[in-house]
Each structure stands twice: as C-alpha cells, then as structure tokens.
Design a protein around this nucleic acid. Structure first.
Lengths: 337, 337
DNA sequence: ATGAAAGCGCTAACAA
DNA sequence: TTGTTAGCGCTTTCAT
C-alpha cells in the first residue's frame, strides 16, 4: 500500500516550494511568470510519479467541490434515468461529478438529501421538486447556490427551470382522441398539486370542454408500489364501462394501466383508445403499441446542465432566471386507431 | 447568506474547547467522562443553532468519506437502475452516500472513474467490471480498499462478488425450449469474455449438445447504440430462416431483438419461440409476452451492500472473500408456448 | 520569478 | 474532566 503523494512531496523532490507547484498545477504559471523550463520539469515529474491533488483538501480550501447534486423522483424510472444519464455525461466532461438520489416524491427524504448535499458542499443542484419543498429550495437560493429545476417548477420560487409544454401536450392529445370520434375520454392522474400534473389536467379539460364533452378524471394517490396504483385503476375501469378512451398522466400510470387493461382483456383500441404521457420502450413494443406524448429527453437534459454549468462559471451568476418550455411530440401508434 | 458555523463557534459560544465539542458530537463523551450536564448543554445548543459539522474537513482529517462508489454498466438500463436504487437506499440508511457512474463497458472510462473515486477518497467500491480492468481493481484491493463486484466477476482478482447461476439458467431455459420441441435454437450474445456471458453461453451449449442438436451462436459487438445491435440481429434472422427459437443473452439484446422481430412480422411463438435473460416490464407487456430468466434483483442488491457494509465496519475486513451465487427463475410466458 | 506561512474545519494525541 | 495544539493537503496573500 504505497503512501499517497502530496504536493509537498513533489515540491521537496524537485527542491522548490509547494506554492510554485500549486501555481503550475492550476495553470497560473504564466500569470505568475514561472519559467517554461520549470513548468515542464514539474509537469513531467508529476505525470511520472502519478501525483493527483487531493480534491478533498482542495475543496476544503476553496469551498468548491466540483460536485453537482441531482435529485430525481425515481432513478429507476426510464424517463429520469435517461435524463440523469445525459446530465452525468455532460457534467463529467466539464469536470463535475454527480451525486444523485431518488426522492420518491417524499418531502422529508428530499429535505434530508438536500441537507446531505449541503453538507458535502455541492456546487449546484438539479432537482425534480416534490411538494412542500419550497422553503428548503428558497434557502439554497438565498445562500447563493445555483438550483435548476426540471419536469415541474415551483411557482413561488424564483429560479431556473426546464419543463415541457404540458398543457398543450395533453390538449393536443385529447383533441386527437376527439377527432378520432371518442366521446368518453378519461384522464388518469396523480393526486397532487405539482405544476406538470396540473397543466396536463388543464390541457385535457380544455379540449374536452371545448368539444362539449364530459370530463372524467380519476386521481390516484401516489405510492411507490405498483399494487396501490393498479387497484384504483382497476376499480375505475369497472365503474366506468362507458369510457372509450384514456389519457394517462405519465408513464408510470400508463404502464400500470396497461397491465390492468391486459388483465381485464379489454380490446384496445376497439373498446378503449389509449394515450400515455412519456414514451417508453414498453409503449412501443406492447400490444397494440400505445400512442404516447414523447418528451424531448435529450433536450431537457441538455438545457438543464447547460444552464447549471453557466451559473457555475460565475460569469452568468446573476443573469435573469431562465424558464425553458420545450415542446413534446405525439407519437401515434395503434392504440388510437 | 448566513455564515456557516464551525465547531469553534460552538466552542466559543459555550466557553469550552472545541475538543470537548468534538468528543461530544462524536459520541465519545462517556468514554472521555464528560459531564452529562455539559453534554446536554452542547447538544441542545448545537441543535438550536443548527450546526452541522463540515464533512469535508472531517474526511480530510479522518481519511474516511462515508461515500461508496458505484460503477454499473448503464444506469438507464432497468436491471442496473433497480439494483442501484436498492443499494442507494440501504447505503443511506447506514450513513453512506453513493456516487455513481455508468461505465458503458468502456475500460478507459471506467479507469477514469475509479481514479476520480479514489481522488474523492470513497470508502468502498461496488463495480460491474468491464473487460481489461483487472489491474485497476487489483490496485484498489492492494491498497486495502473494499471492492464488491456483481453481475460478473474477474477470475484473476481475489475479491467479493455476487452473481447469479448463469450457466444453469441458460441450460435450464434451453432445455425448456428443447422440451417444447424446438430444434434450431439460436443464442444471441455479445462478443466478450465476461464471465456472465461466457457462462450463459456454456449453459446453452451444454443443453443443445446434450440433446444432439446443433448450436447456432450469434455474437454481436457491443455498442451503446441501438441501431448497431439491431442490424446484426436482422442480418442473422434473414440468414437463418431455419431458426425456430432464440435465447437472448440479456435484456438489451432481447428488447432490440423484439423490435426487429416485430418489424419483420415473424410470428411468435409459432414460427419462433423466444426467451430472454433478465426480466423487464417490456417482456411482460409485449405481444406475446416473452418468457424470461428473472434475476433476483432485490437479493443481489441486498447481498452486495451487506457485504460491503460489513467490510467497511472493519471487523470483517480480513474475513475470507465471499463469492455469492444466486439462483434465477424462469418466468414462463406465451412466447414459448 | 519563487517562497514562507496562514488558514479552510476537523480529530486526536498529549497535557493539565 | 477539559483544553492546547499539531496536522490532514491544499490555495493564496504577502514578501522577497
């Protein structure tokens, strides 16, 4: 177990001071007018012995950790996993690491995670905020820490966010169902006050009301357990035999719903047309394939990390907050024929 | 932006020394015979002002970071995401945080990530090792850092690992196909020397040879891009019209294969029976549902983190290395009728 | 152009 | 029972 080298070892071996080594390693040689010759000698030696500065000490000293904290609702959900994946890639390319966690939409867990992140001195936050987290996030912002939200935002918190045009997306999807001649369109969503779900609900309502049809909304309490989602859906389907189309508020609901529908042996699209928010490989491969509102995953990830990296590069620290709204695509498949 | 409190602020406010505060905060009050009265006073004050020790400084001093480094092949793959999820939960409950990254099975990227983790002084490693990473992992172990591998292992590296009984799993699945009367069973796998893929191949071969049938193996180079997987599968299917059953080496191949088969309009199971390693919701919901070799995800995650936490709790540091092999389940669905 | 030394916040050996 | 102090490895001001 070879002892780890420190900057002082390097300095001693080269008979110079650690200050000089530090300057050279941090690219401030020019600025400090250190001779080319010395710079080369140090760089070469450092590489030769494989010296790596201790980033802990560096962080302690500079107050910067080069870590970004990422809080998504559920890292095992394909939508969040894909975004996390891309954010991670871009972050690493820019010298940042990611610490992530799933929040499960649980306020307390999220608070604990934010506390942990602060503790670790993370430089910036990317958060998919659960309800009731406004204060904690405001506190971060007040302390000058950059926070970018995505998927949803908090109306009372002034910070950057990236969302999709939820209202138009469901409006458009609902219109599509109406144009296909569906009369009893249900919307299945989660019981919460998150902006994305509210907007999706609004879009659905708007289209239904415009066409003088009746709304039929089923709100389900969120629990991270599939059975507790499937049961209410089952109950709803049994109660509302007249329903001839369903719009699911997200992929979790859509996938669960699909399982229930399959079990019930309901014919799609003859008896029931289906559209789900979020596209996944399941909707592509199931039978029949399900029409989906595809979110621009790459774009979302890209915008989020770009905004955050900008804030981190201090120059843009006080620019006005950015509110990005991206469009979705209705990917039409056989479930709405 | 309120200034962060340090231990010395606490000590000063209470007119005691920071040593005392440190001892109390680290639960060593009893051992140091600090008066109950003082302990209470300190704890109360600390809570009151919301003081949190700076974990960076703590890590720098103690050499422990309370961070576990997790390297999986692809965090957006359901199998790895689910395991990561569970590991994360258990880790947090035990006071550890997770830093993770996807390796993409890319040796160089993995090396860089290991270097980064070392740099951050992570306390332990959980790795799904790509090929060619033996030396780097051996180096970790030589330096006394606990490493737990899963999904596959490195025959020349003596460390803990958790895998499933790959050989028996594919043997069993292949037997199942044979018993169903299939004669031309193909095995589609990735071109690599990883233990899990080799064992899966062996299991397949064993069953086929035992039954005096002919093996038909298609090896595909791995690229993290779907098109580059789908094309060789398509070519294979076109060339081998006689194939009446396919066993896919993992869920990535299975999902891609499913898309190709769907596009080709091949009738499953009439023309072609299908089994895939790894179970996912796609296999459950696609048409027809696909028989799958289910890995015990919860168990794997649980074993991995249990072993690592044990090593971290120093008592078990030098116990013999553990090699856990878990059984899989063949989840039979309509694709093999 | 280079170096000495202070200090980031914490722990722990040693002193009292 | 409690306090003093060195030092983890680094950056950065100030001196030279």
């Amino acid at each position: 177990m070879k002892k780890k080298l420190s900057i002082i070892d390097i300095a001693n071996s080269l008979n110079i001071s650690k200050t000089t080594v530090s300057f050279i390693l941090n690219g401030r040689a020019r600025e400090k007018r250190i001779s080319e010759e010395l710079v080369d000698r140090v760089l070469k030696y450092v590489k030769e012995v494989g010296y790596k500065p201790n980033s802990l000490a560096k962080s302690l000293r500079t107050g910067k950790s080069n870590i970004i904290g990422l809080l998504v609702q559920d890292i095992s959900n394909n939508f969040f996993a894909s975004i996390a994946r891309q954010i991670e890639d871009r972050a690493y390319k820019n010298g940042y690491k990611i610490i992530y966690s799933s929040t499960d939409n649980d306020t307390q867990k999220t608070q604990e995670m934010i506390a942990m992140f602060r503790d670790r001195h993370v430089d910036g936050y990317i958060i998919v905020p659960p309800e009731g987290i406004e204060e904690d996030i405001s506190a971060l912002i007040k302390d000058g820490l950059p926070v970018v939200l995505f998927d949803r935002y908090l109306p009372n918190v002034k910070t950057d966010y990236v969302v999709v045009d939820n209202l138009f997306s469901t409006y458009n999807a609902t219109r599509y169902l109406i144009d296909k001649g569906r009369k009893n369109i249900a919307f299945i969503t989660f019981t919460n006050q998150q902006t994305q779900m509210l907007d999706r609900l609004e879009g659905y309502k708007k289209a239904v009301v415009e066409s003088k049809l009746k709304t039929n909304i089923k709100e389900i309490d969120f629990y991270p357990e599939e059975k507790l989602i499937a049961e209410p859906i089952l109950a709803f389907l049994n109660e509302h035999k007249e329903t001839d189309a369903i719009l699911f508020g997200n992929n979790y609901l859509g996938t669960c719903g699909l399982k229930v529908i399959r079990k019930l042996g309901i014919k799609v699209p003859d008896q029931l047309a289906l559209i789900s928010f979020d596209d996944t490989v399941v909707f592509e491969l199931c039978n029949p394939p399900v029409t989906a509102i595809s979110q621009p995953i790459d774009d979302i990830a890209d915008q989020v990390i770009t905004i955050l990296l900008n804030r981190l590069n201090s120059s843009a620290q006080n620019d006005p907050k950015q509110h990005i709204t991206l469009p979705t695509t209705l990917t039409i498949r056989e479930s709405t024929n």
